[in-house]
Amino acid sequence: MRVKFCGTAGLADMQCAIDAGCDAMGFIMGVTYQSSDFVTPKDAAAMIRHLPPFIEPVAVTHLQETEDLIRLVRDSHCTTLQIQDSIEPAEMDAIRDALPHLKIVKAVHVMDRSAITAGKRYEPYADALILDTRTTEKIGGTGIPHDWKISATIVANSTIPVLLAGGLTPENVAEAIRIVRPYGVDVHTGIKRDGVRNPERTLAFAREARAALPDDKVFMGSVR
């Protein structure tokens, strides 16, 4: 089970994630909705210099314009781009043409069963989907779970890897994984204590996630 910790805002956050054995680390940049723990591309690049090998740095952003997204990736030195807001699928091809080694993850907000159609729309253009929750004010980091049965349907019918986010915590991640069977899980607010990333909760989340299912029971998606 792959584990991504999002909202890395400083070296202390980074060390928590490294100590927990994360596979990926999210840096929130280019914010247009309410969000916490966001950084500048320059800040992210400085932190990424301290990142050990084999941990993927992910640019998590609300930006929608193609040139803005390309610039963000270049300036931050991230190797994966997570697009949280809406974008025309063809624009994702334009980003890939400019940055051929970049992996692109597209967020799908699971508010109702229309998310199933939304996921299918982006499948041909993304390397992975991430299923998240949104509110009027926030398009990520809400701390609110969504209907995992809908997410399970998306995973079961997807041809690419699907990550699960939205209100996950050390207390509920194992149940979520058993229901949804995603490729990986993503957490931001669920590993905080008193508004700060907590080492014990970060470690507990990774431990619970990886113990939830054997790898042969997890959907891996197709290879592009």
Rank of each mutant, 00 (worst) to 15 (best):
A107D: 13
V58D: 02
T80V: 14
G7I: 01
L69Q: 07
R71F: 00
R113G: 03
P170N: 05
F5P: 01
I139N: 15
G184L: 04
L213I: 01
P53Y: 06
W148V: 13
E123L: 11
A165H: 10
A59L: 14
R74S: 05
V223E: 08
K4N: 04
S86Q: 12
T153N: 06
H101Y: 10
A115C: 12
A126C: 13
I150S: 02
S35V: 01
T40V: 09
L99Q: 11
P145R: 09
K149Y: 12
D68M: 05
Q84I: 14
E67M: 03
I18E: 12
I48P: 03
E91I: 00
G119E: 10
M14N: 01
H77P: 10
F205N: 05
L81Y: 09
L131F: 08
H62F: 14
L63Y: 12
E137M: 13
G26K: 10
M29Y: 05
P89W: 02
F219Y: 13
V162F: 07
A174V: 02
C6N: 09
A45D: 03
E208M: 15
R121H: 14
L168Q: 04
T159N: 13
V187W: 04
S222C: 09
L99M: 08
E208R: 12
P199I: 00
S76R: 07
L102C: 08
V185P: 06
K103P: 03
A24H: 05
S158P: 07
L163Y: 15
R178K: 15
T189R: 15
V223D: 08
V223H: 12
F38H: 15
G140T: 08
R71K: 12
G190M: 05
V39R: 00
V162M: 09
G141V: 02
G10S: 15
L102S: 02
F5T: 10
L203S: 15
I70C: 00
